[in-house]
């Protein structure tokens, strides 16, 4: 019981820490640029990082289940290239979009299939292989060329607004709500958390673990497809090296969002907070012309300290508890 409250209070603290961090970053940004808090500026700041954030949601689910998917960025590349090539060859844009989504979903499904059929293999090694493979196929298709020639209306996806709200933000909010509901309000979400906590006990409790894992990896593929749509739309062209290195950024956001890397614990709203923390931090440092490469130092340090703190905290807690017991 004591243990329980300690852990809960800690998780609570984590969310609040992210909120505090977010406020701090906003204050910093606002003081750096007088225009920062203007509505339009805010929206363009948000639009700058939301495209890759779609992948953070399923990645949170996958990491909570104790797996990992390193191939998501390659899936973005392959599905985007497939779409680009289709359009170049005269396929109507709407069909090309379907091709993009189908490709991405299939990539995720294949990951899930391999991971569940060959349980001896860790998800890390499987998705490292498919990471190389998927991007490799993109290179076969497009070599070092770029594909463009998308119709004008396609750019609305990345740049357009509904009313005054960017389309990408609306779609992101919609998916966030869906993933939040799935993880925190449905039986499937409960089962996902159970699998992450104790895979074996979940099997013995009649949970179809294979099905859930297959679903999670497929969802990751699907969301990579959504990312591919928005990213391609924003850039109006695509290359096989698109979204390179995004997978690690996505994983970093999930971890910073307080998802336990040993599985079984995590909250979608914390992860969303983490997306905004990193995104706005990057934007703010961009205002004062700090190169994005240097921002990575800060992200790296955040990542290390955000995992170091709980582990130190836990050790101190258990020491304290022993001392308390000694005095009983």
């Amino acid at each position: 019981m004591i243990k329980n409250t300690n852990k809960l209070s800690f998780l609570l603290k984590w969310e609040w820490m992210l909120v505090a961090l977010l406020i701090l970053i906003n204050i910093m940004n606002a003081s750096l640029s007088p225009y920062y808090l203007e509505y339009n500026n805010m929206m363009s700041a948000i639009m700058a990082f939301l495209d890759r954030s779609f992948m953070v949601l399923p990645m949170a689910i996958i990491i909570i289940m104790g797996d990992i998917d390193i191939s998501v960025a390659s899936t973005v590349a392959l599905s985007s290239v497939m779409m680009g090539v289709s359009v170049q060859n005269g396929v109507p844009m709407t069909v090309a979009i379907l091709i993009c989504m189908a490709t991405a979903t299939l990539c995720g499904f294949i990951n899930g299939l391999i991971v569940t059929k060959f349980k001896e293999l860790s998800a890390a090694i499987v998705t490292i292989s498919t990471m190389i493979l998927y991007r490799g196929i993109a290179y076969i298709i497009l070599e070092d060329q770029a594909a463009s020639g998308f119709p004008l209306w396609f750019s609305i996806l990345g740049w357009g607004d509904i009313g005054t709200i960017p389309l990408i933000l609306i779609v992101f909010i919609a998916f966030s709500v869906i993933f939040w509901l799935i993880l925190h309000k449905t039986t499937a979400g409960r089962q996902i958390l159970a699998i992450g906590q104790n895979n074996t006990a979940s099997i013995y409790s009649g949970i179809n673990v294979d099905k859930m894992r297959l679903f999670a990896f497929t969802a990751a593929g699907f969301m990579a497809g959504i990312t591919a749509l928005f990213l391609t739309s924003k850039m109006a062209s695509t290359r096989p090296n698109i979204a390179i290195g995004y997978e690690l950024e996505v994983i970093a956001m999930v971890v910073l969002g307080g998802v336990s890397t040993s599985g079984g614990k995590g909250k979608i709203h914390s992860v969303i907070l983490a997306i905004f923390v990193i995104g706005l931090l990057k934007y703010g440092l961009g205002i004062i012309n700090i190169h994005s490469q240097i921002v990575t130092i800060i992200i790296g340090l955040l990542l290390i300290f955000s995992t170091l703190l709980p582990s130190i905290g836990q050790r101190v807690m258990s020491k304290l508890k022993i001392i308390r017991q000694m005095n009983l």
């Binding site: 790296g300 340090l301 995992t307």
Partner: peptide, 17 residues
């Protein structure tokens, strides 16, 4: 006591930067 994958990912960022 950080998982290797996370610790080295963090270091990767720090070193690249």
């Amino acid at each position: 006591k950080i998982l290797p994958i996370i610790a080295t990912l963090g270091m990767m960022y720090v070193l690249r930067g």
